[in-house]
Amino acid sequence: MKKCYLGVDVGSVSTNVVVMDSDENIVDTLYIRTQGKPIQAVKDGLKEIESRLDKDVEILGLGTTGSGRQLASVMLGADVVKNEITAHGIAALKCVPDVNTIIEIGGQDSKIILLRNGIIHDFAMNTVCAAGTGSFLDRQAERLNIPIQEFGSLALKSKAPVRIAGRCAVFAESDMIHKQQLGHNEEDIINGLCEALVRNYLNNLGKGKDIRAPIIFQGGVSANEGIKRAFEKILEQEIIVPKYADVMGAIGACLLAKDEVSKTGKTNFLGLDVAASDFSVKSFECENCPNMCEVVEFYRDDELVARWGDKCGRWSDVKVLSKEKLA
């Protein structure tokens, strides 16, 4: 029986699943698009992983991360539910133990994490605005009718630099249209977009930060070689993109789950079969006070397993209370 740990990272754009064995080797990874349907994405991801795994694999523990981490935890039963920053930091330290800087660009979030002597020393995330993230590139690729996978390699073909405004996705789009109308090459414009995103990132997150090598670049956008090159050009440093750069959050969740299970000696994980369950969500607006919270009710196979979304705890505590009564 091969003993493994599972990490699930439910992000705004992608849902990633990683299977890691007890010696911390990566057994399998999966990157699928969330497409605004996190429940479906988690189910699909788990089913797919289950079908690819050997039959004799035993899952000892589960960790979840990403903005949908609570949801995934309720669905699957997690041993550890961790924020993305800690998860990314732990995974990066595993790959490059002396890492000093992590650049992480995902779908809606971008982060910079500074580490010193193997611990997270400082971090910053983008503010209320999602400019300078993967969604921005996605949107522009769609506009140019280019598959996002080819975006990076096209950027590398650029010979002449074209400067595109990077402060805001809307500004960039109008600037880009203008440059197109002037007749600039597509690859130069794409490269211009990559550089605009990097400038935006460094201005917003890198401001006043001591960006020291070794620098790791991870998150979905790290698959884009054009962005990697733009970072190297502007920072004048080598950028390391680790092998599993797109699923680092899930790797961090695996490592944390292993740690937790070794402490508690048990797991909350409901088993890989849980993906076959029928998950459904009902929501309603609570009318008990003027806050009118949007309460979400979560059902697994018609059984109410959790409620959340209320500020006062009137609804979210119900399940806990009934459990206590049952016990």
């Binding site: 903005s67 961790k82 924020n83 993305e84 920053i85 800690t86 997270i120 020393h121 400082d122 971090f123 995330m125």
Partner: peptide, 9 residues
Amino acid sequence: TRIEAFIDM
């Protein structure tokens, strides 16, 4: 996420 990560740090 931000508060959790900060307290973790």
